Computed example of a mutant assay.
Amino acid sequence: MNSIIILYILIGITVLVSWQGWGNYQLFNRLKFDMNAILNGKQYDRMFTSAFLHADTMHLFFNMFALYVFAPVVLSIFSDVVFILIYITAVFFGSLFTILFHKNQGWYTAVGASGGVSGIVFSAIIINPEMPLRLIFLPFFNFPGWVFGLVYLGYSMFGMKHLKDNIGHAAHLGGSVAGVLFTIFLFPQLINQQAIYIIGMLIPIAIIGILTYKKNQ
């Protein structure tokens, strides 16, 4: 299967499920991440199905746009199967981190592909940290991928502490960890090639994780 096609299929499924969820409250309620339903109802499938739902069109657009921008870097060195495996693993880690940070909040719910997208974003950054990026509204201004990674982590930290938007910000952190570690596991040569960037990503991830975990205990 062509790599670009697998990316379009993933985006298409996510858009379709999100769109269906917006018009069907029962479907949305059954697929979303729900702490009580997962821990007490043992509905563990929500740890994965919630990744295909989004809070609104803007939330969906930014996640899918990030996936569209960074996925080709990952697909340039890994097969379609490995790409999907990284994505699914990152979704799972995102849900695990969400449970870890919010396990005492039985009312907590969230939606979004944040975990999976974060995994792909940080996998791409570790592979090519100097990849040139530009903002849609500032097309003449370029900045390296690692800068985006730090800003992304900062936004996740702010979201976990201050925002009440039903978006799975804790999943950003879990997905980021999965993306970095799984990519290194699959491509260990990167430890020597990108050591400073790997350390630069893992240190703020660890600090954010520790501070957020303590805050929620």
Rank of each mutant, 00 (worst) to 15 (best):
I5F: 11
L16R: 07
G21E: 10
G21N: 08
N24H: 15
N24Q: 12
Y25T: 13
F28W: 12
F33Y: 10
M35H: 03
M35E: 07
I38V: 12
N40P: 07
Y44K: 08
Y44M: 09
R46W: 03
T49V: 03
S50C: 13
A51E: 05
F52H: 03
H59W: 03
V69I: 12
V74Q: 03
S76C: 04
I77Y: 08
S79M: 05
L85I: 07
I86Y: 12
T89W: 15
T89N: 15
G94M: 04
L96C: 12
T98R: 05
T98C: 14
I99L: 15
G106L: 14
V111D: 10
S114K: 00
G116Y: 08
S118M: 07
V121S: 11
A124Q: 04
I127K: 04
N128Q: 15
P129G: 07
R134L: 09
L138Q: 13
L138F: 15
V147L: 15
S156P: 03
K164D: 01
D165R: 04
I167D: 01
A171I: 00
G179A: 04
G179Y: 07
V180H: 00
F182G: 00
F182A: 10
F187D: 08
M201V: 06
P204N: 04
I205M: 11
I205R: 01
Y213H: 11
